[in-house]
């Protein structure tokens, strides 16, 4: 999926994550800010990259502001942001 425009998903409520995505040439950059960065920072980046790969995203800058979300929530927010950025609103 191609990132066509800037998009966002999620909230900064506790147990949620606010994810923004924007087009970025051919590379993928993932930035994570989290209340549990020491304990789960690497996990969060790994699962975000997995979702991007599953969706076939090739160029994107992803920023995650995590408020202690479980992995299934982070995955959902990343997917939603990417689909919105790719013009897929279904």
């Amino acid at each position: 999926m191609k990132i066509l425009k800037n998009a966002a998903a999620g909230t900064v409520e506790s147990s949620d994550a606010y994810v923004t995505v924007e087009p970025l040439g051919e590379e993928i950059s993932v930035e994570v800010e989290s209340v549990v960065i020491e304990q789960f920072g690497e996990d969060i980046e790994r699962c975000a990259r997995e979702v991007l790969a599953e969706l076939g995203v090739e160029g994107a800058r992803l920023v995650i502001n995590d408020r202690g979300a479980l992995e299934c929530v982070i995955r959902a927010r990343v997917e939603t942001a990417v689909r919105r950025a790719g013009g897929d609103l279904s």
């Binding site: 999620g10 479980l70 992995e71 299934c72 959902a76 939603t80 689909r83 919105r84 609103l89």
Partner: peptide, 15 residues
């Protein structure tokens, strides 16, 4: 609607 659909789908899948 899109965000909730994906979130609920993941909740069913992973929880």
């Amino acid at each position: 609607k899109d965000a909730a659909r994906i979130l609920v789908r993941n909740t069913l899948r992973y929880m």
